[in-house]
């Protein structure tokens, strides 16, 4: 189980690196799909079928939108020389990354080991979930009953993002200038 996850993670990291380094933007976008679809398999292995269903469709839609954008603008990666000031940024970025890893490894001690989750909060939801919400799918019970406010906020964000996209992209109103 854990070995399978490690293999998948290495595959996803390789896909991510290729997506960032590819010369052609279209192949970058397509190899970005490796990460998303690898995530679907990880969700299935980690017993989260709800998430797998959502992720597989959302990933497809994101890829369609990204490919539409790349095909309608340009596919060429930027090829100009790396300027001097970039090296400073790179060094600063590396220092930041090492600091990040250092603090992460420090904080690993506070986490319980993989697969041995200390179920302090989960016990409440698992034992009282069916009686409290009436839904035998506990994820739906948590999303819509215990944490209904979160869901309301989430769909508000979705609504706002769609309005934002329409505002940014719409040129129907501007045509009559």
């Amino acid at each position: 189980m854990e070995i399978l996850l490690i293999v998948l993670f290495i595959l996803m990291i390789a896909g991510a690196i290729y997506a960032l380094e590819a010369k052609d933007l279209l192949s970058a976008v397509v190899s970005y799909g490796i990460v998303g679809f690898g995530l679907v398999i990880c969700f299935l292995l980690l017993q989260a079928p709800d998430l797998a269903i959502v992720q597989i469709v959302v990933e497809t839609i994101t890829l369609i939108i990204m490919i539409a954008v790349v095909l309608n603008t340009t596919r060429e990666e930027i090829k100009d020389k790396v300027p001097q000031s970039m090296i400073v940024y790179a060094v600063l970025g590396l220092i930041f990354m090492f600091g990040f890893i250092y603090f992460f490894i420090l904080s690993l001690n506070g986490l319980s080991e993989f697969g041995k989750h200390a179920t302090r909060m989960a016990t409440e939801y698992i034992q009282g979930g069916v009686k409290g919400s009436g839904s035998i799918n506990l994820v739906t019970g948590v999303v819509l009953d215990y944490r209904g406010y979160d869901t309301l906020g989430e769909i508000t964000i979705l609504f706002t993002a769609v309005i934002g996209v329409l505002t940014v992209l719409r040129s129907r109103g501007r045509k009559k200038e």
Binding site: D50, I53, V54, I61, S135, V139
Partner: peptide, 20 residues
């Protein structure tokens, strides 16, 4: 959604997929 994996988010994305 309250009986098996799924729910509004999963079903909604699938419906959008059929129209797309």
């Amino acid at each position: 959604g309250h009986l098996s994996p799924g729910g509004g988010f999963a079903g909604g994305t699938i419906i959008a997929g059929s129209f797309i």
